[in-house]
Nucleic acid binder design. Structure first.
Lengths: 128, 128
DNA sequence: TCCATTTAGACAAGCTACTTGTCTAGATAG
DNA sequence: CTATCTAGACAAGTAGCTTGTCTAAATGGA
C-alpha cells in the first residue's frame, strides 16, 4: 500500500494520498455522486464532500450536472485523474510481482483465490 | 480487525481502541520503554508517550523504574492489561476460525504460511 | 395537486490522534 | 570534566475526520 503510494507520488502525483485511490476506484466506475462515494468509503457525506472538493481543486475529478436530479452532481475523472489511475494500477501490479516470485505461480494463484473468497463485503476502511 | 475490537469491547474493555493492541504486543514482550514503543508503532516519541499516558491512566500499563537508566521507565502490563491481552488473543482466533471452515484445513495452513512469508518487516502501521 | 417526508449537498464548529519544536535531566564518549 | 547524545515531558499546531444544522430539490401518499 505504502509502496503503491510512493510509486504514484514519484510519477508526479505528489498531492495524492493513499485513501484517494479508493475514491478514484468508485468515481472511475461511473455514476457516482458524493453520497455514493461516502457510502463506498464508509465515511460521512461531509467527509466525502471535502475529499471531492480537494480532488476537484487539484484537477483529478470533475463535477457534472446530474441528468435526472438537480440537487446531485455526477462525479467523473479528468484526464489527469485517469493518468493517476493508470499509474496506480501499474504500481499495484509491480508491488505484488515479488510475491509471485517468492511463492511460485501455483501457490500465488491459490493465495489470490483464497483471499478473494475471504474478502469481507462492505465499505473500504483502514485496518484500524 | 474491527471484529476483534468489537469482541474485546464487549468483554468490558470499552476504553481500548484497535491500535492499543499493537502497543500491548510490544509491552507484553517485556523490556519496552516509551521510545521502543514509538519505534515499534512507527510514530513519534511524543505520540507514544501520549498513548502510554492514556493506558496508564486507564489501568492497563505500569511505568516501573529502569534498572540502569534513571531517565527511562520500563513499561509493563498490569493484571488488567494481561486480561485484555488474553481477550484479544481469543477474539483473534475466533475471527479467523470461519476462514478455516471456508478454505479447509490444508488451504488454510498454506494461506497462513504464505502470508507469513510475505509479511513485510518494519513497524506496524495502518493500511493507509 | 398539495403537503409531509426524504435526500443531496453546503456551511460551521469541534474532536482526536497525530505532528513539529523545544526543554530538562541523566547517560556516554573523548 | 566537558561536549554530545538520549529519554521523556511540555506546548502548540494540523489533518482528517465527526456531529449538527440548513436549503433546495425529489418523492410519495391523501
Amino acid at each position: 500500500m505504502q509502496e503503491i503510494h510512493t510509486s504514484v507520488s514519484q510519477q508526479g502525483f505528489e498531492d495524492l494520498r493513499p485513501a484517494h485511490g479508493f475514491a478514484f476506484a468508485r468515481v472511475s466506475a461511473g455514476g457516482a455522486t458524493t453520497a455514493d462515494l461516502a457510502e463506498h468509503l464508509g465515511v460521512t457525506k461531509q467527509a466525502a464532500a471535502q475529499l471531492v472538493e480537494e480532488l476537484v481543486r487539484k484537477g483529478y475529478v470533475e463535477r457534472r450536472p446530474h441528468p435526472h436530479d438537480a440537487r446531485a452532481r455526477l462525479l467523473g475523472l479528468t484526464e489527469t485523474g485517469w493518468a493517476a489511475t493508470r499509474a496506480a494500477d501499474q504500481a499495484a501490479r509491480a508491488a505484488v510481482a515479488p510475491w509471485r516470485e517468492v511463492l511460485g505461480e501455483a501457490r500465488f494463484s491459490e493465495l489470490v483465490a483464497d483471499l478473494t473468497l475471504l474478502a469481507p463485503p462492505g465499505p473500504i476502511r483502514p485496518a484500524w
